[in-house]
Design a binder for these strands. Sequence first.
DNA 1: GTGTGTGAATGTCTTCACAGCT
DNA 2: AGCTGTGAAGACATTCACACAC
Lengths: 259, 259
Amino acid sequence: MATGRTHRPATRSRGIPEATVARLPLYLRALTALSERSVPTVSSEELAAAAGVNSAKLRKDFSYLGSYGTRGVGYDVEYLVYQISRELGLTQDWPVVIVGIGNLGAALANYGGFASRGFRVAALIDADPAMAGKPVAGIPVQHSDDLEKIIQDNGVSIGVIATPAGAAQPVCDRLVAAGVTSILNFAPTVLSVPEGVDVRKVDLSIELQILAFHEQRKAGEEAHPDGTGPAAVTREESGDSAESADQGPDGDVPAVMPA
Amino acid sequence: MATGRTHRPATRSRGIPEATVARLPLYLRALTALSERSVPTVSSEELAAAAGVNSAKLRKDFSYLGSYGTRGVGYDVEYLVYQISRELGLTQDWPVVIVGIGNLGAALANYGGFASRGFRVAALIDADPAMAGKPVAGIPVQHSDDLEKIIQDNGVSIGVIATPAGAAQPVCDRLVAAGVTSILNFAPTVLSVPEGVDVRKVDLSIELQILAFHEQRKAGEEAHPDGTGPAAVTREESGDSAESADQGPDGDVPAVMPA
DNA sequence: GTGTGTGAATGTCTTCACAGCT
DNA sequence: AGCTGTGAAGACATTCACACAC
């Protein structure tokens, strides 16, 4: 959701819906787990449960990739892992730089699920001269003066911004000027980027606020089941599945699952 | 988005669309910045630009809250800040616990944007006895043996899980059993929760994979503008705004913060 | 004149339900 | 018989465009 949207305003042909793309990593994770347990095939029903979505959605999602299943049987786990990995571009190596090595930047640098999926932390960059040379997660921090050179030398196209809000836009501008075309932004700011550059943002405080909104409703309902309370709701809890969560914004990334 | 959905299956009356709720924090942030600069009023056009959305969407979003603007003039900044805060439930205090004080947990504990919005870190919990008593961000870490007591003593209803994947579900179960009804999950796992409990997830690796997907397409197009390449695309990049990113997810989903 | 508020139109995502392949 | 793949229906979200209030 962040700002508008740059990628295909409505692509057809090999156009995989954005909502589907956002779920592919989820399926991939579930499939990887099955693969490690040497499970050979899986049905849409089983895989959907593992990924926390419903089976119709999963089948529809896979249908955009092609017909990789076998009717009456299910999906071949290894084959699907490969197809989804390829579709997501994970069969290649993605050098990534992290800018802003504070608490969060360090946490990201140490994050394991990083390397496990084709992403390689090529460099850590920080504006504090005192940090320069210090190793974090085994990688020496470099000073931001060299940002452009680092990007270019490593052929980096994906940048992660974990700086304070005020530094985010300038850093973003430099990253883009140096050739970065995809940015994952952890700073609580809206970034302006030229067309063709993708930005995804992750904002803790926003997630908490969304939770608070729903939490408030729950409290209001309890206290006033008649729908009169503070945040009078009047829902109808219509008969419905028994799922849970969701995940927000636009692409609305999915988020959880039922018991 | 995620799985089904627990909150109003399609509530009307005071039913604010989920997509709108997800944007309210964005508007609030932009408004807070204006407020600090003592700007008295703002038009939908200006505010939309600051929040990174288009003005029609913003007006539609606000229309779900009520008619807080003045035709021909715009919106009163202070008044809107108050209304949105109230709608989001930020006028009250939300004690939060963070479970799992590793790199990420520590980063979250240190996050400023936290307290700034009605959220108060009531306790830090970790399973490592060696951590017990150590202060992180000025708050002493407590051992997870006391999790239930901590939740109850502090009246916590929102929990943040920043543990390794394997520990997430057990921790989640204990949190829920102790009374937590909203969970922000940073562990790369699908959590099972009973109906009535909200879960939002933030997964760094998923965000990167989505970026990689788009990045791959860009590369494919450059190399094969005819739409024949590896991941043959054939989009049409139809004329479009000059905004940027999106977030998914589901929407989009999304979540953290800066150093 | 200016900018909000909103019905109507359009577009996207999800769910249903079943035909068709194994 | 079983489970995928998918048209069609429905729900939801965004955008348009303009009447109306200031």
